[in-house]
Design a protein around this nucleic acid. Sequence first.
DNA 1: CTTTGGATCGTCT
DNA 2: GACGATCCAAAGG
Length: 198
Amino acid sequence: MTRAVPRRFYDAGALEVAPQLLNKLLVRRSLAARIVEVEAYGGADDPASHAYRGMTRRNSTMFGPPGRLYVYFTYGMHFCANAVCGPAGEAEAVLLRALAPVSGLDEMRQGRHQGVRRLDDHQLTSGPAKLCQAFGIGADDDGADLVTGDRALRLVDDGVAPPAQPGVSGRVGIRVAADRPWRFWVPGDRNVSVNRIS
DNA sequence: CTTTGGATCGTCT
DNA sequence: GACGATCCAAAGG
């Protein structure tokens, strides 16, 4: 059975919500994929967070109510997506780093028409920018409500529990506070983006 | 197999 | 004006 993830799920801080997000499903129309890797980002207390230096036009969704999607543009060509957590104003969020495709693989493959070579299933959503390409997530989806599905993006629970003992490591791709063990993944899943442990 | 560099531009200093 | 919560292809061992 499948049920929507309720608003109160996001009330806790990002560090608490992040591992609970593992094995939940991201759904958009006929597309569905299981969350297998995430990272927690704090607010004013986390130097690696976009919210560290206060609210700006770019990060304002982080400062809003929980349960919404914070989408940002980076490296001149990539989007990444986060689930906003905690009370409004705290500006905490969980970055979706990797998914395991469940349905709609052909459409995901189309969204990711990059090079000429054929992509294996486990390469469709195995990275924060890749999963946005596969799901067609862009600037228009910043602020999307994951509970009401106002942009067709929802998080649902199909009964698969989060792993009792998730993989844990420092966060990827940041320079400051990289030692905080705030990255979590489903052990053994082939879609996890980085397999180095540190 | 690992390492490196290019792409590409909105955001903040 | 510098730099990213990245990805990919090409070069190197």
